[in-house]
Design a protein around this nucleic acid. Structure first.
Lengths: 200, 200
DNA sequence: GTCTATAACGCGATAGAC
DNA sequence: GTCTATCGCGTTATAGAC
């Protein structure tokens, strides 16, 4: 590979990455259906017609947005692993949700709203892909509850993520960020109330 | 008003009602954006071009779908008022959610998914209207918690509706109706655990 | 590899015959 | 009051110049 080739590849990869990030952001704000290729191209500062060189269809761009959300989630959980106590990891997760309250009140949870939208389709497997991204979060939470020695860690993980999706949707529908703060506080109390090693 | 006029009016009103019910159903399944006027007209068995006689724009049809959901909600809560104990009313509400688990797993909560979709717009006031329908449910639940003598009835109502929206979204995203059953059971336990008249 | 011009299509909305 | 034919627009996707 020559230098010029490498530089061209690097530019192409960078453009592709810019398009992925732009797709994630614009789709979060406008929804997949209302977002046009031109919207994403403009946000990524890439010529409109050129987008098809990187993504053959619009659905591929939506899939890219999902992958970008999955990447962001992995970055977040990766940071949380630095904490020694799984309970602290979970509480820190809740706190990061609350810190995003203004964004959630305006556009909802990026993955949750996208999953809901894609589930209205009968074609393609994009809806299944969205479910997989949400599963990543549930599975991570389940591992934390298991480490805490909780019975039914999957049920607890489901409850936690369900609470997050619910409070995001309500904060969004009622345009009220304080819902995130108030319900987040309830979740923190709940996590604190769980016994360290419950009787079996 | 002559007999013939009344009969014409009655037919027109009936057609309008059919269109409202069809809009609610089709929009729930396909989402507002993917639903075309033709889809609704076909479901209501009304000639396609004739729809505009009853609803001037597509947005008016979406608003009609929201109104239909509000009407269904009032029918449900009206039935629950027959129960003497507010705790039983709330538990019965949860049970009705669980009984709709297959529909929720396929298309989510009708009002919640529609609200999330409409909140992606910056125009019109349809998103605010969707928030109002969700508020109806929260306010009703709040009255029940207040009758139960609970402190912070609004917070409890928010938690309950939030849990419903969250479990509906997860059941939908993961295509798993058993999530409604399991999280519904948790909600019933929670309602049972609330003291009748807590210390002030 | 990059970008422009345009084809092909589906949709909401309207005009006007019945 | 009812319905059909059609316009105009915005969109995805492609063909092909550079």
């Amino acid at each position: 590979m020559t230098d010029s080739t490498r530089s061209r590849v690097k530019t192409a990869a960078a453009k592709r990455q810019r398009l992925m990030a732009a797709a994630a952001q614009v789709v979060h704000r406008q929804g997949a259906e209302r977002t046009t290729i031109a919207d994403i191209a403009h946000a990524a500062d890439v010529p409109v017609g050129n987008v098809y060189y990187y993504f053959k269809t619009k659905d591929e761009l939506v899939a890219a947005a999902l992958a970008e959300h999955a990447r962001q989630l992995e970055i977040l959980t990766g940071r949380l692993e630095a904490l020694a106590d799984p309970r602290e990891r979970l509480k820190s997760l809740v706190e990061s949700w609350v810190s995003q309250r203004d964004l959630a009140a305006r556009y909802g949870c990026p993955t949750g709203t996208l999953a809901a939208e894609l589930d209205k389709r009968d074609d393609g497997g994009l809806d299944v892909e969205a479910g997989r991204v949400i599963r990543l979060l549930i599975d991570w939470a389940e591992r934390q509850f298991r480490e805490l020695g909780q019975p039914d860690p999957e049920g607890l993980a489901l409850t936690l993520v369900s609470a997050y999706q619910g409070m995001s949707l309500l904060a969004n529908a009622l345009r009220d960020p304080s819902i995130m703060t108030r319900q987040g506080a309830r979740l923190l109390d709940w996590l604190d109330s769980l016994p360290e090693a419950p009787a079996v």
